[in-house]
Design a protein around this nucleic acid. Structure first.
Lengths: 349, 349
DNA sequence: CTGAAAGCGCTTACAG
DNA sequence: CTGAAAGCGCTTACAG
């Protein structure tokens, strides 16, 4: 593969001149140099450049599950910005494992200029070392305990939980359950808290067996829903903490032949491409996805511009939005009393 | 950040000795060196290493659409192998654009040890340059015209198209349409060809207006389905060439209030997580997904083992599988003649 | 086993 | 504007 020396020799100049030309500097023999570059198909060595400059022009993206459509969308957003800004994306999938995350981060520290991370848990300590190593770090979707010193792109998870609760309350439900995500995770914890707070605010205290925590995976959504259905007095409404758990919940409901929303209302967090096509079309708390990746990457790349480098941390918190479809309805006990439901809903909106 | 010299100084040895120790060589002062490494939190510079060795221990993964669940799964498979084998994954998303692919590949050539690519079209020429640059290349999902000289992990697309056709024929359909993917793409072309061949083999020649080509995106599935429905004599059965187009088709069918499978049978290519939960549960041609990423990465990493480096190209072709759910049924005209349908089906199985 | 030295391919002050 | 030279942080024959 041609080096800068080959180009220099061919163009009859020194390597320094070629380097200057490549970097956009004024050079007398620019045509000859360009010709040599073209003829040789020269492309600078990234390794040599970054050894010299200390910059890799690569960003690390670390997500818990790339097959979760939400994270796939976030990654798409991140990638689109890196490409536009002449950066590259080194992608790692931690499978929700803090241990893998530790390995990945330690490895990335020397290979990237910055990292965007959705940490496996809020308690992870390794991200702090990343900062010690002077590698800028931006959180996306999930925060760290004590993460206020870092940039972050999050959504108002508690607010989303509240919206879900108010929607169900508004329909007249009082036997309301939640299957939550990992409680050592920002979204898992905050969605549950916001949801429960809103219930309590309305005087509805869910019994412990209605308040179940899973791990954001489909299997846990399935299992927890099954256990709710086996209760002597099952809930009439269910809030599921993310897209995958909602799928699991819906499968359990189908398998047990539970009519949705007739016998059980279901509201999920995070929309799906197939949301409107499901049986029944899903009512969900929606939020921006690709945009979160875009914002996180922009936040990160700002740090490489001298004028922003020392800014105080920026914390972007996006709003969620209720998308009403057909998986939620008044409980059966109120089915004949639509008017009452409507007035109740008005109170809560 | 500590360098190998810092470690050497602290341990009272030469940098060469530290290097040897790090590479697993026998060293007398291994304890002192290890201590120095730990105390300094030393981690070798990837740039320096790869400048010296010419190896980056990084693999490029280039896909047309990371938010397509199929490719997300493939990427997951690729990533899992890189991590296990101490490689990293540089991810690029080309948005089905050959131009972006060209840029990405040119850029990657100097930054990775090998590339796994699902090319935007079969006619792309840049992948050939990658090979000229001595960067091993493996195709996944999509092949190149003249790609026989490269390793590849593909599925039997023509066979899958045939399975779909035989399934619909077996149900008694004769007015059968196909909305195909990009025809300058291996899966787009082969699925259509296999499908049409099987129809013709059964004496069913679809009119041109039943044979529509799209681009693998949801919007094209939607539009093409709409145009089929507007025909004076619409088909009674529809084969859709990939997961996203199937979603689009299903949305169009819903929007036009067309009963599936009552008035239109729908069979897709590629299953979805939500497949069983859709209205109606989708009949599809399924295939391995994560596994394709795993196989492609293994094939690629083999090339770095001297004993395999010069092997002839390996072409792995996986089988597809029909998953019967409820979106396909006999056409209405046969609804009362179940027995006839059954015998017909027997002939085709 | 060990260390001094050269070199991987760039970039960047420094003289001219 | 240009070129010679040093150096980024490693690795690897080469002597010892």
């Amino acid at each position: 593969m041609a080096t800068i020396h080959d180009v220099a020799a061919r163009a009859g100049v020194s390597p320094a001149t070629v380097s200057r030309f490549l970097r956009g500097g004024r050079v007398r023999s620019s045509e000859a140099v360009q010709a040599a570059v073209d003829e040789l198909g020269y492309w600078p060595s990234a390794a040599a450049r970054s050894l010299k400059s200390g910059r890799t022009h690569t960003i690390g993206g670390v997500v818990p599950d790339i097959t979760n459509p939400y994270f796939a969308a976030v990654v798409k957003g991140m990638e689109s910005v890196t490409r536009a800004e002449d950066y590259r994306l080194l992608l790692a999938n931690t499978d929700e494992s803090g241990e893998r995350e530790d390995h990945v981060l330690a490895d990335m520290i020397r290979r990237v200029d910055g990292i965007i991370l959705a940490p496996a848990t809020e308690q992870d300590r390794t991200p702090l070392h990343v900062r010690d190593a002077d590698v800028p770090l931006v959180f996306v979707d999930r925060d760290l305990a004590g993460g206020e010193r870092f940039d972050a792109v999050l959504v108002d998870n508690a607010g989303g939980g509240r919206q879900a609760a108010e929607h169900l309350l508004g329909l007249g439900h009082t036997r309301i359950a939640a299957i939550s995500g990992s409680q050592d995770t920002t979204p898992g914890r905050c969605r549950r808290e916001g949801f429960l707070d809103a219930l309590r605010g309305a005087g509805v205290e869910p019994p412990p067996e209605y308040d179940l925590a899973g791990d954001f995976r489909e299997a846990s959504g399935y299992q927890l829903t099954l256990s709710l259905l086996s209760l002597p007095e099952p809930p009439t409404a269910l809030f599921s903490a993310n897209n995958l758990m909602t799928l699991g919940a819906l499968k359990a409901l189908h398998d047990m032949r539970v009519d949705v929303p007739g016998r059980m209302s279901l509201i999920g967090f995070d929309d799906l491409d197939t949301g409107p096509l499901l049986r029944p079309p899903l009512t969900v708390i929606d939020r921006p996805m690709v945009e979160q990746g875009v914002l996180a990457m922009r936040l990160l790349l700002r740090k490489f511009e001298p004028e922003y480098a020392d800014d105080t941390p920026r914390r972007i918190v996006l709003d969620t939005e209720l998308v009403e479809r057909s998986s939620t309805a008044p409980p059966r006990s109120l089915a004949g009393r639509r008017a009452a439901t409507t007035s109740r809903r008005a109170r809560h909106s």
